[in-house]
Design a protein around this nucleic acid. Structure first.
Lengths: 225, 225
DNA sequence: GATGATCTCCCCAGAACTGGGGATAACGCA
DNA sequence: TGCGTTATCCCCAGTTCTGGGGAGATCATC
């Protein structure tokens, strides 16, 4: 993967790339982290835990399409600290660059960035192509890094159960759910009990999250309306 | 905007388009909703509130790049209900299509879809271009409707709080969390309490889901390892 | 007609959570 | 030095959840 990325990066006229989830490196977590940035910068980046506050990362959380680093202030306002981070990156050898955000609900935020050497100019005519490459590169990395392990049969819930779980996910108590659905509290308790059983979990919190994860309910069910 | 979309749609060889946030239509909410689908289907879609459960929408919540509708089962597993929804859409005049997801942390999920008439075939060589157009179209629509996030307060948690919330999301009890983190149960109770306060919620279930939604924790934290 | 699935309702005991009220210590920042 | 933040711990009363045990009604299917 990194060989391929290096090749593509070069072919597009860039010098460095970073294909990352925006988290501190935790070996235990299956996150994407394929980077070819100046070593010096990578170390400082991690030491200072910039993955959360780096202005490029922050900007990538506010948009859906890629952007040139030189245009970052059109997306977020830069603080003095941000400017010094950018200056430091430049010192370390990173010139202008282009970052493609990669967000999926319920997953870590990520991005795919390509950078020139310090002093070189971006070829703006090429950016749409870079956008495309960035998106697909991230998706590919994400698929590879995900073991997609159990692919266990997602237990299906009955309609009533799903309705109850959706309300559980909204933080409703069993009594509140009974009022919303117009049935008895005992009935709700039973539906939630049955739903927990189907998922083989013992806590309603995990029930809600599992149901969310495999699409029995969606974030729209939780926050919609 | 819709004129332009219609033109682009035609130029790319498609018949219909839909540039939408995945929510029920509410005039009060400033969300993107630019659609040119068969009227019949739009009505049924809204009547049955499919925005949340439509398999194409669900699939678009699981990926970051576009996908052909005919390949949707490689992303999510289809239930019988899903299949009947797809069949119904086909009946209504929607053939194969291509959907580009558009997700931004803290905002409503959205997508940009292009569809053929029933019976026509997708030109797969063109899909990368469609991907590009879809992304930019959504971003443009989003900027115009300038919903720039309903100033979605994304409260930040302290490290300890986030650790506790991640474990809450795994269905652990406060006592279990205390054992895992090697601290007192009372301390865990306090951290969870503080985290609930920051999010302004009163139930740990909603706390976990909110934290999941805006990226404080991820599904990897919940299911990983 | 039996069987299974679903939805509805009921009771109970013990565990877990929630919302108040405290406290101490360490750290950085002004 | 004082103030805010964070992390740690403690107590308590009341609510909510969890895991057992039931039961009757409907509906489709075999």
């Amino acid at each position: 993967m990194s060989d391929l990325m290096a090749e593509i990066t070069k072919a597009m006229g860039f010098r460095h790339y970073a294909l990352v989830h925006h988290v501190d490196l935790k070996p235990a977590v299956r996150s994407v982290h394929i980077v070819d940035y100046p070593q010096d910068w990578v170390e400082r980046f991690q030491a200072r835990r910039l993955y959360a506050s780096d202005p490029i990362h922050r900007a990538s959380h506010r948009t859906n399409v890629g952007f040139a680093w030189s245009a970052v202030q059109s997306i977020i306002s830069l603080t003095a600290a941000d400017r010094s981070i950018l200056a430091e990156a430049y010192e370390a050898g990173l010139g202008d660059g282009f970052t493609v955000p990669a967000h999926i609900p319920g997953e870590l935020n990520g991005s795919c960035s390509f950078a020139m050497a310090a002093g070189e100019m971006l070829d703006h005519r090429q950016l749409p192509f870079v956008q495309l490459v960035g998106s697909f590169a991230f998706e590919a990395a994400r698929k590879i890094s995900r073991i997609h392990a159990p692919q266990s049969e997602c237990p299906s819930l009955t309609e009533r159960q799903a309705e109850c779980v959706a309300l559980v996910a909204r933080g409703k108590t069993d009594w509140e759910i009974s009022q919303i659905l117009g049935i008895g509290q005992e009935t709700v308790i039973q539906h939630v009990k049955d739903a927990r059983d189907r998922y083989g979990v013992t806590k309603r919190t995990l029930l809600a999250i599992r149901a969310l994860f495999d699409g029995q309910i969606s974030f729209a069910d939780v926050f919609g309306r």
